[in-house]
Write a protein that binds this DNA or RNA. Structure first.
Lengths: 201, 201
DNA sequence: CCACGTCTGGCACTCAGTGCCATCTATGTC
DNA sequence: GACATAGATGGCACTGAGTGCCAGACGTGG
């Protein structure tokens, strides 16, 4: 995935600082809570200025949700790569599954993020906002597939695609909430499949 | 719905001020855009102090989304009143339909709100956040229904209920987006039904 | 008329986020 | 190796949302 062009010193320091800020912030968030931690504190602890914090993260929420945009792109390209004859739901499921392989974060950290996410209103809202961006990526791809598979369907393919994408993301959200609530005991895929089954029954 | 206890002067003025702020704000939002309008401007135009604005609306977004919490309660009580033998999707659909009768806003205003909603990220996120509150209201009711109808199903009734509720709200969201995009030309119910059909196919 | 509770404006404050500028330094070039 | 340049940084000032507090005005019930 990462081209092994020799990273310059600048790029390496930037990456290091980025990670340092993220680590520091997540530690503080876990200790004191998300709302209760100010950016000044994070910056001070990370040894940078307040102003520099915003050069690495646009918002406080982005520290927690930073990889979501990237993940959206992963899902989108995975969806685009699915065989054309695969039905919509199966294709979307497979595309979402591509995340499991791409995500490097270990489960404990992921659970920590999840707990923070489902425990804080603002964070939850921003999370949903990012998922909205996923929609814009995924809907056109899926719509094209549906159009190709069934050229003269009764329902507008774009609407159908939007519905399936939003439905799938909603299921993922529910599954995520349950996964967190059960401390990761039930595998996410299983929860997702159950949710989808419940919807389509 | 409203108990006809003689409203005191205080209650009447409060209601009037509330409405005045909302009207002023919506006008300014429409003219200059949501982000571009500050609370100071709204307060000044409405003839109240900045501080008083926050005594009527907790956040700027609440001016636009104010009635959503109330609407959630309407849907919840409608859902609770549906016959026990009605299948989940039908019951939820009927409950959502109760909104059509309860909402007094005329269609043009509703379209204006919709355009604002789907045109602004923050607003959109807050909207979804409010819908999350609907979930908490609706899921227990629907779960109880599912549990009663099918005492020993494979899937956890609570999860199934959550999936259906979230799925339905997702469909409503998609339908709303399309309704706005087509300037209300296609009836919302039709779009909702199409979306649900697309999901369950 | 009086006591109480509510509403109000105003002030000061916190915190997120942005624009601007001076300074420093890694990098590529002659 | 000197040099121009582009990127990174810290600091400062500013806006805008949202909150706490307080003193004064006013509707309400006794």
């Amino acid at each position: 995935m990462t081209g092994n062009a020799p990273e310059s010193l600048r790029e390496r320091t930037r990456r290091a600082v980025h990670q340092e800020i993220a680590r520091t912030a997540m530690r503080l968030f876990a200790e004191r809570g998300f709302e209760e931690t100010t950016i000044d504190e994070v910056a001070a602890q990370a040894g940078i200025s307040r102003r520099s914090f915003f050069r690495y993260f646009a918002t406080k929420e982005d520290v927690v949700l930073g990889e979501l945009v990237e993940r959206g792109r992963i899902v989108a390209s995975a969806l685009a790569g699915r065989p054309a004859d695969e039905p919509p739901w199966a294709a979307v499921r497979a595309a979402l599954l591509a995340l499991r392989d791409a995500v490097t974060t270990d489960e404990a950290d992921e659970l920590e993020i999840g707990r923070m996410l489902y425990g804080n209103q603002t964070l939850r809202a921003r999370h949903l906002e990012k998922q909205l961006a996923w929609q814009d990526l995924l809907v056109p791809i899926l719509a094209e597939r549906i159009r190709a598979a069934d050229p003269d369907a009764g329902v507008d393919p774009e609407l159908a695609a939007a519905a399936v994408v939003v439905g799938a993301l909603a299921c993922l959200d529910v599954a995520g909430a349950w996964w967190v609530r059960r401390d990761g005991a039930i595998p996410l895929e299983r929860l997702y499949d159950d949710a989808v089954a419940a919807i389509r029954r």
